[in-house]
Amino acid sequence: MSSKIGSCRIDAHGVDNEVATGWRPQAGFTHSVTSPDQLERLNASGGIAVSFATQGRSVHLAFQGSQSETLSVWETQSRTGFITSPMMTAELVTIRFVETGAMVRINQNGADVIVSPAQALLTSFDVMRREQATPGFSAISATVSRSAVLDACRALFGAETTMLPQFETVVDLDTTGLRAVRSTVTALRQHLSTAAGPIDLMLPLLQEVLLYQLAASWPMIGTGPSLHIPTATGRAVRQAIDYIEAHLRERIAIRDLAEAVGISVRALQIAFKQQMGCTPINYIIARRLDRVHAQLRLSENETIRQVAASWGFVHMSDFAKRYRERFGHLPSSRRAGG
């Protein structure tokens, strides 16, 4: 829900060229509105992308999430329904997964689309005129910058790509790829629900996963750009592994990894899957877990949280889940001698 109130504009990189008067990054926000007076105060307070209006005398609206210049993720629930109108212009792409109820989106050209449960919406924020949610509405949504999506398309389809593909606006969640996009948005929401510092190495990986999933899995109108996938050798995978091991405590972007070994992102993903049985991102996470696993027995003066954080895991519930999936027990068992 990355936004700007008033006439200020967020450019293609999500960076504002003027002083923000209403919008502000928020690591976490929670709003619960049950009266017209509360709704009026919410609209007056600013800080979000849209203004809200009721569809009747009663009002119930709740939403919570986080927002920044590059990524915003939030959940919305409403028993009464609501109407929203943009209070900004921004080069952002909106992704929305409707869970219950429905939403009608009316664009600047007068065209409208309806998004129902088990469907998802992908559209540019700046074409919206207003949105109307039915009573009983709930959804999880995200915004990413248009330039970030374009960069992901270039990495997958080739550097000659100069425009975003024309994605379908509303799709059914009937493919594994689309369900994976939904899962990644949910994982980002859970990950961002707890504040983290700069040592969080999971967040940039999840953001990158979302962009590549979006570019590769969302249906396009027409044929879309051709996917050029040169064959990657075993040597390229070994070089990629060497790069990962040398930079394991640093932020590793898959695009940088592919460039370091001289192949495309898509070729690297396919080669890793074929030769290692996993994606590059899953390999990076597994190797960081391995380092934590080894260090827990050697660093008795450090807490489990400190050891995990030293390898980029700052959300303990997510870390414990991943650790147990890999080793079959909780990290506390390892510290106890298991």
Rank of each mutant, 00 (worst) to 15 (best):
residue 5 I to V: 08
residue 6 G to W: 04
residue 8 C to Q: 12
residue 13 H to T: 15
residue 17 N to H: 13
residue 18 E to D: 12
residue 20 A to I: 10
residue 20 A to M: 14
residue 22 G to I: 02
residue 23 W to A: 13
residue 26 Q to D: 08
residue 38 Q to H: 03
residue 43 N to R: 01
residue 52 F to C: 03
residue 52 F to D: 06
residue 55 Q to R: 13
residue 60 H to L: 08
residue 71 L to Y: 10
residue 84 T to K: 05
residue 86 P to L: 00
residue 88 M to G: 11
residue 90 A to P: 06
residue 96 R to K: 14
residue 96 R to Y: 02
residue 97 F to C: 06
residue 98 V to Q: 02
residue 99 E to R: 13
residue 101 G to S: 05
residue 102 A to K: 12
residue 107 N to G: 06
residue 110 G to Q: 05
residue 113 V to E: 14
residue 114 I to L: 15
residue 116 S to T: 09
residue 117 P to Q: 06
residue 119 Q to S: 07
residue 125 F to E: 09
residue 132 Q to N: 10
residue 133 A to E: 10
residue 137 F to D: 03
residue 140 I to P: 01
residue 145 S to M: 10
residue 146 R to T: 12
residue 149 V to C: 12
residue 150 L to D: 06
residue 150 L to S: 03
residue 153 C to T: 03
residue 155 A to N: 12
residue 156 L to R: 11
residue 157 F to P: 04
residue 157 F to W: 07
residue 166 Q to C: 11
residue 168 E to K: 13
residue 174 D to I: 02
residue 184 T to K: 00
residue 185 V to E: 07
residue 192 L to F: 04
residue 200 D to K: 01
residue 201 L to P: 05
residue 203 L to S: 06
residue 207 Q to N: 11
residue 211 L to V: 05
residue 222 G to R: 01
residue 222 G to K: 00
residue 228 H to L: 13
residue 228 H to I: 10
residue 234 G to K: 10
residue 237 V to E: 02
residue 238 R to S: 14
residue 238 R to F: 11
residue 238 R to Y: 11
residue 239 Q to L: 04
residue 239 Q to V: 02
residue 239 Q to I: 11
residue 242 D to H: 05
residue 243 Y to Q: 05
residue 244 I to Y: 03
residue 244 I to N: 07
residue 248 L to N: 00
residue 251 R to F: 01
residue 253 A to N: 15
residue 254 I to V: 11
residue 257 L to Y: 06
residue 265 V to H: 03
residue 267 A to H: 04
residue 267 A to S: 15
residue 272 F to T: 06
residue 272 F to P: 06
residue 272 F to N: 04
residue 274 Q to H: 12
residue 274 Q to N: 14
residue 283 Y to I: 08
residue 283 Y to D: 12
residue 294 A to T: 12
residue 295 Q to C: 10
residue 307 V to C: 01
residue 317 S to E: 15
residue 318 D to M: 12
residue 319 F to H: 05
residue 319 F to M: 09
residue 319 F to N: 08
residue 320 A to P: 01
residue 321 K to P: 08
residue 321 K to L: 14
residue 323 Y to M: 04
residue 327 F to Q: 01
residue 334 R to D: 02
